[in-house]
């Protein structure tokens, strides 16, 4: 990767493009975008190998993988796989494919990794509790004017801003 990475596109242009993608998703398929649902099903797929009896006893998991239901047999899995592929394509085009760790200047790589892992746990847990992540609830639900999605969106920003000050050492 000797060539310099292309700059990110203007946020409003990116937003407009994302808006058009979101609109087309609704227009063509009737559902919005999402990410955590696909990861959820991927996880349940793995769990089903390790402990299938357990799946059959937990109602929440049963819905996705009970009996001979294949948890990967869902559109959201394909959407999630596509999101990953899209990232690869855009990363290649923008010459931004690089093994690296983005972090604040004052913390070590290892600290950043631990924080990313912990943040991921909270994100995953919260996303299932809220029945959707930033893509599925805030973005998709926001665009179709769902009351719950707007309340959710404000809660996400509130939670992040409330804690941002105390974590400034990690990012600045």
């Amino acid at each position: 990767m000797s060539e310099r990475a292309r700059p990110y596109i203007n946020p409003y242009l990116a937003g407009a493009l994302l808006g058009i993608v979101l609109f087309l998703a609704f227009f063509i398929t009737g559902t919005g975008l999402g990410a955590s649902g696909g990861l959820n099903r991927l996880l349940v797929y793995g769990q089903n190998f390790v402990a299938p009896e357990h799946i059959d006893q937990v109602p929440y998991l049963l819905k996705m993988a009970g009996g001979n239901t294949n948890p990967l047999d869902s559109w959201i899995v394909y959407l999630t796989a596509g999101t990953f592929l899209g990232g690869v394509i855009s990363g290649l085009y923008g010459r931004r494919m690089r093994v690296e760790t983005n972090k604040g200047p004052r913390i070590s790589h290892r600290t950043r990794w631990i924080m990313a892992f912990l943040g991921g746990i909270l994100m995953g847990y919260g996303a299932r509790l809220a029945r959707g992540c930033t893509s599925g609830q805030a973005l998709s639900g926001g665009a179709v004017l769902s009351v719950g999605s707007w309340a959710f969106m404000f809660a996400v920003f509130a939670g992040a801003y409330a804690l941002a000050y105390f974590l400034r050492r990690f990012w600045n």
Partner: peptide, 11 residues
């Protein structure tokens, strides 16, 4: 869930 995710976002 949103509050938890907000915290997860900044962490």
């Amino acid at each position: 869930g949103g509050l938890i995710m907000g915290v997860g976002f900044i962490v």
